[in-house]
Amino acid sequence: MTFADPLEIDLAGYDSVVVSPGVPLNRHPIAEHARNAGVSVIGDIELFALARPSLPPHKVVGITGTNGKSTTTALIHHILETAGVPSLMGGNIGLPILGRDPLPGGGVYVLELSSYQIDLTFSLDCDVAVLTNITPDHLDRYEGFAGYAASKERLFAMQSAGSVAVIATDDDQTKRIASFLRHSREGGNPYSQGLEVMDSRLRGNDGVVAVLSTDITGQSRWPALQGPHNAQNAACAIATCKALGLTDDQIEQGLATYPGLPHRMERIAEKDGVLYVNDSKATNATATAPALAAYPKIHWILGGVPKTDDLDDCAPFYDHVVAGYTIGQAGPMFADILRTAGKLVTESGTLEQAIADAAAAAKPGEVVMLSPACASFDQFSDYEARGEAFRTLVGTL
């Protein structure tokens, strides 16, 4: 088998070059090569968008944001399935959407979309487009934070009349985008002309559902959706499912039965009144902080390969930490930080020992949580292997 080098092919006559979202278009030579030939560079989501007219009647929900988009995507998909609505989940989560069989008529495709995927998409007209939040990320691919935010914003620019925009307005960038959508429609800008919009109280007619996580009630009834970050995810999912026509009872049933994603505040087991939670996906302090906020009494297992030399983002929630159990390369450093903050610490060294130490100390009503605030590569192949080890070890208690 012979593979051609796309950089040496004469692209004249081609419609497009299809690349992986991981290809950095800001510095990869394929971008200039395609531009010189007048050929667009697209991704698999654009191929799906182009194929939509040939599919049975359906709707598309697109979810983007810096954090929470995987949980929000999976939650919307679960609510729809629980309500009996045919649904497929894809994009930046699970199997590629082009690798799935088409849905029957009336189905809903629920797509998690990274900024990289949006950059390669030009005609995805989402019936509901969702933005969870925007914080600095992937800045090596963009001209600063503004360029990154503009990439997320393009999801709404592709929407047509009658579409709904759901935006969690908990940060400055999302507030700006929601405001711009509304004002641009009032001014006749085609960017949002004709959007059918609701806000969290179903007011207005400008096409934007602006939701705030502080508006959420009932979170205590949804076991897998604890913590302020999951309040935001739930707020977006509720607004989206209402826009799709689901009833409050259907939405509540989905929220209450949502099992959560593996390694993301995953409830593993409850033993002798102690809950064990796997948050192995939290590979930095910023990701761990919401997990610490979710429960009032935590035996915290942390450590691994550190990405920073501090735990500053976690500090506001130290009052939720009953004790810390450090592992891996960062163990001694994190132990010093927690002791300086007045917390009890055991330098367990390994995950197996940390679970044994925490299980021996935890009382009924408390939580033993793996939320490492570190990469895993000193002791595990990846965060998934670390989480699976936690699950197995808890099962042996």
Score class of each variant (00 low, 15 high):
318 Y>D: 02
68 G>N: 10
149 A>K: 04
60 V>I: 11
80 L>C: 01
278 N>Y: 01
163 S>G: 15
160 S>I: 00
353 Q>E: 10
78 H>G: 06
248 D>A: 14
166 V>Y: 04
90 G>Y: 02
242 K>L: 08
262 P>T: 10
169 T>W: 02
34 A>R: 04
88 L>R: 01
294 A>N: 12
222 W>R: 03
311 L>F: 14
41 V>N: 01
294 A>W: 02
326 T>S: 15
57 P>G: 14
298 I>T: 14
318 Y>R: 07
24 P>F: 02
390 F>T: 08
346 T>V: 15
36 N>S: 09
293 A>K: 04
114 S>V: 07
335 A>E: 10
386 R>G: 13
273 G>W: 06
14 Y>R: 13
347 E>V: 11
324 G>Y: 03
265 M>R: 06
371 S>R: 13
157 A>I: 01
292 L>H: 05
286 T>H: 13
93 I>T: 10
80 L>F: 12
67 N>C: 09
6 P>Q: 04
303 G>Y: 01
101 D>Y: 01
278 N>T: 12
335 A>W: 01
150 A>D: 04
131 L>G: 05
127 D>C: 00
6 P>H: 06
203 R>N: 06
283 T>F: 02
2 T>F: 10
107 G>M: 06
95 L>Y: 09
308 T>E: 14
315 A>W: 06
149 A>I: 10
93 I>E: 09
130 V>M: 14
349 G>A: 04
360 A>S: 15
36 N>C: 08
239 A>M: 11
149 A>H: 08
215 D>K: 02
36 N>P: 00
85 V>K: 07
285 A>P: 07
137 D>N: 15
132 T>P: 06
135 T>A: 15
179 S>G: 04
181 L>W: 00
88 L>A: 13
50 L>R: 15
95 L>T: 12
